[in-house]
Nucleic acid binder design. Structure first.
Length: 885
DNA sequence: GCTATCACG
DNA sequence: ACGTACGTGATAGCA
């Protein structure tokens, strides 16, 4: 006996349930949690090669903890039926695998694991506890490690004594003190009010334990002391509740937990019953096989042919059969990325091309193939690949299926989109993380060719396996059209826009910079003079000291680290002291100078005089694009001083024009459509001023009685509605009381009852399905929609209301971009689409096309999608982006 | 690397 | 009672 694995069954299955998309067998039984669990189990068996294993479950509702504290785990949502029905399946599966499981009435899985890990430790065995519950860290010792699940369950992070020390600065036994002080909302453990993780850690670093803290409260002061004194009993009880009981009367012999490999026949039968086809193939990993042949490594060696003038013919012969393309590059900005190498794979073989080989004559047929739009390609992040190759002078065409992009659609909030992460998610052999192969940050180093080509080939091999699984999933969630007809074509269009770039007039920017500079230095002088000292104005900390300590201005708001000095606070302080207004002006100009003048100048390519942004298609949770290096979606417009920055954005050809068209009220129009609200639809059918109309209905007055203030309030309410309204949020925005805000909202919903119904229904739908979707079937999962934690749940509810609106608007402008691209091509126009700013498209247009484009662009945008209300786009043009207003 | 701030839709 | 508006990216300071 050498290694014992103890799995916290309830914790893992619960996490698996919320981490995995819904999945049912053909008979309609939910299986997603079992799938997730099995996936992680197989990986664990393969990687850890345990000699003994046991899965512990909670039994019954009442445990000994309830005897002392009836509210233990109170307020928890009851287990959804979709999950409950999976517990029996889970036990059945474990039995079919030949894995022991155990539960004992009156005790939780924690206690069982605590007890057995102690026994294992005493018997001199290495123990690995697998759980999602941080409390279990208290079990860690020399022999016991605790693996915590991360990001759902696709990864685990092992903690030993050192890791706990590094992360918390605590010994394992102090974890219960931490819980005692901070509590745990999910178990309804109270802790001490006002003490969160940070404060709790600080106290423990100083005093060592709950008892010691409570004994020495006289060394503390303020609210914290008061809370500790008043809630001393809560702290003691919380600590006790968090303490795992390690003397459970378990009678399990080591033999029962012994594990020598999966019972293949039975396990295969079970997996077939559950319809887990992809897991079936992995069964052979589990027993102690092929360990020696892999040299102790769990990784399978992949055959890869390094291309040179001797081997090139092998690749050329099979080019038509190439299934997957990996273009590896280094650097965040793909316009400046360094090409590291390329791997092309057929079903059977992998070929590696070094950058210099790709640039040599022998690679000519490969280069032609890469650039051929009629040769369809699959691969990972083909958008980046395209840009990387472009700056190397190599064309890339024919992107058909991008695995990263598809992974984004399947779960836009999964932030691990790496090949390694996806491979783990699909349970496909281990692919090393790039970081492990290259190192990160300053330590980045390209490994030798053997290692590099092996790594890339492994990635490619994993992608080959992911592809069919992904296709099946896209089909299942009805995203085929969204993917193949919208996102894939768009990715090509985006790359073209980015390569084209936008011309920026350096001189204009520098002149603006000089103006800003003059104002900034005079403001700085004035501020130092008034303050009576010089300090770093850019440091919120130093500024806070000047305003609140030296000048004694009232503290409006605090941040985690000290005084808040943001614009909202400064506005409120302005009446108290002249210095505040100058600081506000300084802030504004400093922002313009550093981010927009200096920042933009740095991004201009000297050889083209243009900035080439990178539109990211796989970032946002809602389906919007984002823009980086530089961000061209947040160029100032609201204030005149900043708006002038737009004068620097000019057409790239003499005499051309900038043309901009933006959707008018697209989100509210989308809301009118999906809610079906009569009043809202009516307003848009008559193309009324929507904020005025809202004011009329909410305040019950005629159009001519709506004053500026009423319209302003109505506008804020409309924004609130789109964001998933809350009285608090609205009250903040309008600077009114929560009561008044709540009244506005109520009046709004009375006036627009269809909207109220929609908001109620969409939240219900989210709670039922676990996700919401847009008109074009784009999804966003909301795992926290049923959380017991009020904050998490409320956030998810607002998201459920907002995402279909923001996401559908994103769908629509993406459609419009595809249509515009098509129209420009069909009519062989010279005009070029340059930018997208969420509800706006920007073009550069030759003079002879200006008239045509002025009607063509808004018309195309308006017919992008047929809704029950018309879409409206407004267009304007000028010599630069500023004048196109 | 994290926090605070502020630019956009 | 709880405590926040939805979605992003860039910069500067500071540990």
């Amino acid at each position: 006996m050498n290694k014992l694995i103890l799995i916290d069954g309830n914790s893992i299955i619960y996490r698996a349930f919320f981490a995995m998309p819904p999945l049912t067998s053909s008979s309609g039984v939910h299986t997603n949690a079992v799938y997730g669990f099995t996936n992680m189990l197989l990986r664990l068996l393969q990687e850890e090669q345990p000699s003994h294993i046991l899965v512990a479950f909670d039994a019954g509702k009442e445990t000994f903890r309830h005897e002392g504290y009836q509210d233990y785990k109170g307020g928890r949502e009851k287990t959804p039926p979709e999950l409950s029905e999976q517990f029996p399946l889970m036990r059945e599966l474990l039995e079919s695998f030949g894995i022991a499981w155990f539960e004992l009435p009156g005790f939780e899985a924690d206690d069982i694991i605590g007890t057995i890990s102690k026994q294992g430790e005493e018997a001199g065995v290495d123990v690995l506890v697998v759980t999602g519950d941080k409390d279990m860290l208290q079990l860690v010792s020399d022999r016991v490690k605790v693996a915590l699940t991360r990001k759902g369950i696709s990864e685990v992070e092992p903690y030993g004594i050192k890791e706990i020390e590094d992360k918390y600065g605590l010994r394992p036994e102090q974890i219960i003190d931490l819980k005692g002080l901070m509590g745990d909302a999910s178990d309804n453990i109270p802790g001490v009010p006002g003490i969160g993780e940070k404060t709790a850690l600080k106290l423990l670093h100083q005093f060592g334990s709950v008892e010691e803290v409570l004994a020495r409260t006289d060394e503390l002061k303020g609210k914290m002391k008061e809370n500790l004194v008043n809630h001393a009993e809560d702290a003691r009880m919380s600590k006790q509740l968090a303490t795992i009981f390690r003397e459970v009367p378990v009678e399990r012999s080591w033999e029962e937990m012994a594990f020598s490999g999966v019972l293949e026949e039975q396990a295969a039968q079970m997996l077939r019953k559950l319809e887990f086809k992809s897991l079936l193939e992995r069964l052979s990993f589990a027993p102690h096989q092929d360990v020696e042949q892999a040299g102790g490594s769990a990784l399978e060696e992949v055959q890869v042919t390094v291309i040179d003038d001797q081997t090139i013919h092998q690749l050329v012969e099979v080019l038509p059969e190439v299934q997957n393309v990996v273009v590896e590059s280094h650097g965040e900005n793909p316009h400046h990325a360094v090409l590291m190498g390329v791997v092309l794979s057929t079903e059977e073989e992998h070929f590696y091309l070094a950058p210099e080989v790709l640039h040599s004559d022998v690679a000519k047929p490969v280069i032609d193939w890469l650039g051929d739009k009629n040769k369809p390609k699959r691969g990972y992040d083909l958008h980046r690949a395209d840009l990387t190759l472009y700056w190397q002078g190599i064309e890339f065409g024919g992107a058909e299926h991008d695995i990263q992009l598809a992974a984004y659609l399947l779960d836009p909030t999964n932030n691990d989109q790496t090949v390694s992460g996806l491979a783990a998610k699909y349970g496909i052999g281990a692919v090393a993380a790039d970081e492990e192969v290259y190192g990160k940050g300053a330590k980045f180093k390209v490994p030798d060719q053997a290692l590099l080509s092996q790594h890339l080939a492994r990635k490619s091999a994993a992608l080959l396996q992911i592809l069919p699984l992904q296709k099946q999933e896209l089909e299942q969630v009805e995203m085929n059209r969204l993917f193949y007809e919208l996102e894939m074509p768009l990715s090509i269009i985006l790359a073209e826009m980015e390569k084209q770039g936008v011309a920026v007039n350096r001189g204009t920017l520098m002149e603006l910079g000089a103006e800003f500079e003059a104002q900034i230095s005079s403001l700085i002088a004035r501020i130092y003079d008034i303050a009576g000292l010089e300090f770093n104005l850019n440091s919120p900390k130093q500024l806070g000291e000047v305003l609140f300590d030296k000048l004694q201005l009232p503290v409006i708001k605090k941040t985690k680290t000290g005084y808040s000095t943001d614009a909202e606070v400064l506005e409120k302080l302005a009446p108290y002291h002249d210095i505040v207004q100058y600081i506000l002006e300084y802030r504004q100009l400093a922002k313009l100078q550093s981010t927009y003048v200096e920042g933009l100048l740095k991004e201009i390519r000297p050889e083209t005089g243009k900035v080439h942004t990178y539109f990211r298609q796989t970032i946002t949770a809602t389906g919007r694009l984002s823009s980086q290096f530089p961000n061209l979606q947040n160029i100032p417009i609201r204030l005149e001083e900043g708006r002038k920055i737009r004068q620097a954005f000019v057409p790239s050809e003499e005499g051309w024009f900038m043309l901009s068209a933006d959707y008018s009220q697209i989100e509210l129009r989308v809301l009118a459509h999906i809610s079906g609200d009569n009043g809202l639809q009516e307003a848009f059918l008559h193309d009324m001023d929507i904020h005025t109309k809202t004011a009329m209905k909410v305040f019950g007055v005629a159009a001519d009685q709506v004053d500026g203030n009423m319209r302003r309030s109505a506008k804020a309410v409309n924004f609130g509605i789109v964001y998933g309204i809350s009285d608090y949020g609205l009250s903040q925005n309008l600077n009114i009381t929560r009561r008044e805000a709540a009244r506005f909202i109520d009046q709004y919903f009375d006036a627009f009852q269809g909207v109220r119904t929609y908001m109620d229904e969409i939240v219900k739908e989210a709670k039922r399905d676990g996700y919401v979707k847009t008109l074009l079937e784009r999804r966003r999962y909301l795992p926290e929609i049923n959380a017991s934690n009020f904050n998490l749940r409320s956030f998810a509810e607002r998201t459920a209301m907002n995402t279909p609106i923001q996401g559908t608007a994103a769908d629509i402008i993406k459609l419009a971009m595809i249509m515009m691209d098509e129209v420009l091509r069909e009519r062989k126009l010279k005009s070029r689409m340059l930018l997208q700013v969420h509800d706006e498209l920007v073009f550069e247009v030759p003079p002879e096309e200006l008239e045509l484009m002025t009607t063509l662009v808004p018309e195309t945008m308006e017919r992008a999608l047929q809704l029950s209300v018309p879409l409206k786009a407004e267009v304007s043009s000028g010599a630069n982006w500023y004048d196109a207003k």
